[in-house]
Each structure stands twice: as C-alpha cells, then as structure tokens.
Design a protein around this nucleic acid. Sequence first.
DNA 1: TTAATGAAGGCGAACGTTCGCGCGAACGGT
DNA 2: ACCGTTCGCGCGAACGTTCGCCTTCATTAA
Lengths: 338, 338
Amino acid sequence: MGHVTLKDVAARAGVSYQTVSKVLNNRAQVTEETRNRIWQAVRELNYRPNVSARNLRKQASNLIGYAWHYMPDEFMQNPVLDGFVHSAANAAEAHGFHLLTFVADGGPPRPDVYHELFSRNQVAGFLLADTVGDDPRVEMLLDEDIPFVTFGRANDEWDFCWVDVDGQYGLRMVVEHLLQQGHRRIGFITWPEGSQSGAFREAGYRQALESCGLEPDPQWIVRGEHSAELGRRGVRRLLELPRERRPTAIACVSDLVAIGALGAAAQAGLEVGEEIAITGFDDIPLVQYTQPPLTSVRQPIDAVGERVVDMLLKQIQGEVIDRKGVLLQPELIVRASS
Amino acid sequence: MGHVTLKDVAARAGVSYQTVSKVLNNRAQVTEETRNRIWQAVRELNYRPNVSARNLRKQASNLIGYAWHYMPDEFMQNPVLDGFVHSAANAAEAHGFHLLTFVADGGPPRPDVYHELFSRNQVAGFLLADTVGDDPRVEMLLDEDIPFVTFGRANDEWDFCWVDVDGQYGLRMVVEHLLQQGHRRIGFITWPEGSQSGAFREAGYRQALESCGLEPDPQWIVRGEHSAELGRRGVRRLLELPRERRPTAIACVSDLVAIGALGAAAQAGLEVGEEIAITGFDDIPLVQYTQPPLTSVRQPIDAVGERVVDMLLKQIQGEVIDRKGVLLQPELIVRASS
DNA sequence: TTAATGAAGGCGAACGTTCGCGCGAACGGT
DNA sequence: ACCGTTCGCGCGAACGTTCGCCTTCATTAA
C-alpha cells in the first residue's frame, strides 16, 4: 500500500481524521477509550505524519541549515567543527529537527544561498561556524530577520546570538601551567593579526605572563597562516634566538600548528617535554598519539552544540532570548609534552 | 511583507496563479509577452516557491538522506568520506536537491531511522557509505523498495546500486611500482580478514606479486584494526624477520596506517625512501607533508559523488538503471617514500 | 422541569503548489 | 459563412496536515 494518511487511521478507528490529528498532537479532548483506539490504529497501520504537509500547514520547517565549509586544500579537516556538527545534529534531532547541510568550495558560501534556502521555506534557521569579523552572512541574516546562531563571535557591535569557547581563558591556563613548570621564556605561535579568536588567545597569553610580572618579548610571537608548516617555521625561528632570549616553552594556537612544532623540535634534536615544552589547542583525537602526547586545551564541544541548537530553536519559536552571547570554558589537558 | 506566493505574482502579472506555476515550470503554452510579464513580476516581487507545498503536491522530497557516521574515538576523521559527502552534496545541489545529514554515535544508524525518515516523506532516498558485508540497512532498503545508492560494495548477492573505487587495481599499481623499483620482498599491512575492501586490496597485492612469479610469504602480511598503531606494530613485526626474508618495501592499506609505519621505520633508524619503501592508500591531504612525502593511491572522489547522486536521482525518478555497479579507477601518486 | 455547563469530537477551511481538463477566441480551409 | 483545429489561458481539485469553531449529548444545579 502507498502512504498511510490521517484519513486511513481515522477510518480504522472510527473517528474523523481531524480528531486523529489532535490526539497525535496531544491537543484533544477525547475519552481514554477513543484515544487508545486511535493509537492502536496508528500502530497497526504504521502511520507516519507527512512532513511536507505539516510544514506547509504550520508555515514552518523542521530543518536547520548548516553550511559545511569544505577546504580540500586544507591539510587536515577541522575535527572541532566535525564534533560541533555532530553534537548540533544530535541536539536538533532530539527536538524533531534535522540538519540540512549545504556546501561551498573555498570560501564561505555567499549570503544569498542562505537567503534562498530560507525564503523557499526549506529551512527554519541557520547555524554558522567559522564566522569572520564583519561576516556578510551575519549582516544579511540580521537584516532579514532570519533566525541563526553562530559558533564563534563576530563583529561585537552586532546584536545576535552566539556561543563561543573562551580562548583567552584557555591560553591563560596553558601559560599559567607552563609558568608553574618553571618556564619563564614562553613563545607563542599564532595566526595572523586580524584573526578574532587568535586575538582572544593571544590576550590570554599576555595576561598570564603579565600577571606574573613578565613582559613578552615581541620576538617570542610568530605569526602565520594556519598549517603544520607554521609550527615548523615558528620553532625554527624561535630556536634561532640567542640563548638567553630563547623560549623554553612554546604555546601553539592550535593542535595542527603544534604538530608541526613537535616535528621541528624533534628534528632539532630536542626532547620535547624535557628540554622544551610544547602545547596545542583543540585537543583533537590525534594528539593523544603524537610523540610525545601533546598538552592541549579541550573545547566543550558537546555543550556548544546543545546551547547553539537550544538558542536557535528558541528564536524559531519566537521566544525571547535572555542571554544572547554564551561563553563556555575549555579544559586544560596536560600530557607529556609540557 | 510576509511570503510572496504564486497568487501575488499572478495578481501583479494579471493572470491566474496556475498559469504562473506553469510558466515557472516551463510547461505552459503562453505568449512570449505574458511569459515576460510573469517573469518580471516574479523578479519584482522576489518570488520563491515554497518547498513544502511543492513536495506535498508532488508527493516527493528534494532531500537526500545521508547518515554521518561519527566516531569520536577515532583518531582521525576519514578525509575520504568528507570528500565524498562534499562532492555528493555539490552534485545534488546542481539538481535542486539537498543533503539531510543525520548522525549516529558509534556504529552505523539502525535501519529504522532510515525507514522513519523515508516514510515521513522527509527524504526521497539515501546515500550510504561504509557499508558492511551483510549490511542490515541495505537489506531493509531493498526490502522496502526505498531508493538508495552506496559508496562501496556490500553483499554481492544483493542487486542494488553501488559505486566503488577499484582497490584491487589500486594495490596492483602500488605493488607493480614497487617491483619496478627493484623490490622483491614486499610486505602488506592491512585490516582484519572479513573486511571487504581489505580483501580487494589484498587481491591486488597478491595478483601483482604472482604475475611477476613471486609468491608472498605469509609473514609479510600483518593484520589489525585500522589505526596508526597498526602501522607501527606492522613495521616492527616485519623488521624482526630474518634479513633474507625481511621486506624492503611495505604497502599499507591506508594512509593512516602508513603514517604509523613511517614513524616506526624512522624510529628504527631507517631512511624511508632510501633503505625502505612505504606506501599508503587514499592520498589524504596530510601525506603531502609527511617526512618523507608518502606515495599513495588517490581515489577519484569527485567522480564518485557525481555518479552516486546521478544513480540515486535516476532511481527516484523511476528510471531504469542500466549499470547497477560502477567501479572507478584510482590513480597512483608516487612520492619520495618509495 | 429547565436552563446552564462542559466534555467529546465533527466540520470546514486553509497552507502553496501542480496538474489535467475545459473553454473561448482566433485561425485556416472548404 | 461554417466547421474543425490549435493556441492561450482559466478553473477546479487534490496533496496531508492543523486549527478554530460548532454541534451534540449528557450531567448538574436551581
């Protein structure tokens, strides 16, 4: 048989199909007995509501759009984002929503892709990751009053919902840990200026040093595009410094960078964890297996997914959001590299 | 203003709304002039069709389900699958379809998740990756006559659509290349018996050796679960063999395994590429940057995505599929490790 | 007895499309 | 002038829901 509809169920239960609908949605005043009859018919016929019909009638959608920002030239996919999508999808499914993922090569997708999806009523809102400072997508979504939540902050002057992990706190923990290990000259290999999360992490680095009365030598900071190569280059450059200014510990802005750094340090004949300390950020699964295992900062990625979906669904349902920005605290994972 | 519907467009163009629909779907007999009027009204009002209404009426869906099989404990995500999803999503979008991704922790999702999604008319069909031999999902989908295509083969006795990369050919190329480099004792580090794609690759390994008159020593084959650790263990074990039986080249079943092998060989004081050859499979982006860069086999992943979507859409539209199984040929990428 | 109350469930309409049929006008041929 | 044909477009219906209102009937209180 083709599709089972409300009418089929109603016929079998001996009621009108609208009543069946009400029972299924718990907004019915019916006797216990008819309710049971209806549920039994539902089970016997294996009825499943038609999503399109429901969405059409309710002028809604049970889909959440997420642009999967794929970069084939990137050396390694971003496990943090993978974890984010996964937890967000899980959280959404718990509320009867699903993730519609669309893709874009190279840069982030153009705002009109979002607009199109929304105005066709295909999705009820969006989740954004890797936003940039003045992200045109955020601007458009805000303008058009389309529900969305970002993972990561953007332009501070815009008033929208975001969830982020406190990178400043994360790096402060890292550096405080290194200081506690006795290190006094601590390098930092990071992204170019202009990166917002880079700036937060750098602030944490400086803050920890300064609260200890130390001023970071400008030469201790090496910048470059996100890659393992940056880590290698950074270590080489830091090791070239004269002995009395040479860092004994190096904090890296990400695990990927730290992996490069690990390699370069080993190549330079240094035993990481003994003669030099190296740390990462993100705690990707790989770093448990590096030689030596890497000290890193774990992002509470499941919590991020839940909060993000929670806020988005509230927006979609038109509720007021009490706290538009949510900052979650990461966790320091100390391993043998420091 | 709220949503612009066909009626709004029709009012502005001075025609009935059904005519607008026909014009937009190119099934109208109308004068050039009214067609233009209608299109102009569409543009002026920025009309976008309502997906739910369309799907409801057409008894269809513009979504393709894909279960994103996430394994947090896995050391490294699978870049091949990422590439697959990306290319499939791209191909789908070119035909007005989108990917609905749902998730499952640990193992593959239960068949009833698929069934549910389909019977609610949420999706029109499915894409499956990492299928296993007697995959219960495949069995169910076949039983229920739900459109789907798999990336990778399953039980040979079932008659369904699949696209796969010829791993046997891939490993034959690898081993032939190694033979050509003068190697005569070639090891193979692979997955446990029972893995289907493992079996194909192993067949290629054997075939190449045998066509050269060599018989593989059983000790040259090391098996274990997919991990970098397997590579390390494999190399150690192979290097323990007496000198005259010790392989001078080692083919690994995947890049991940090869990365472990690379590390263990270096640790044993061997210069990879000179004193020993090591190869991988998949050509993940990372292996361009290993020390030394890894010889690998590149899967034609874009082609896979396109074929898969193509076959699925044909099924959805009820066309007959001429060739149910498609085997695509990979490419050998020779780098310094061999 | 009667009117008010409330519970149980039916009914009509609407959400925005697509699709087949039908109708009037124009047109060409006899 | 008449008839068949084609063109251009309108009309009604249907897809499967949800939602508010209405009807029916039994119960209760005055």
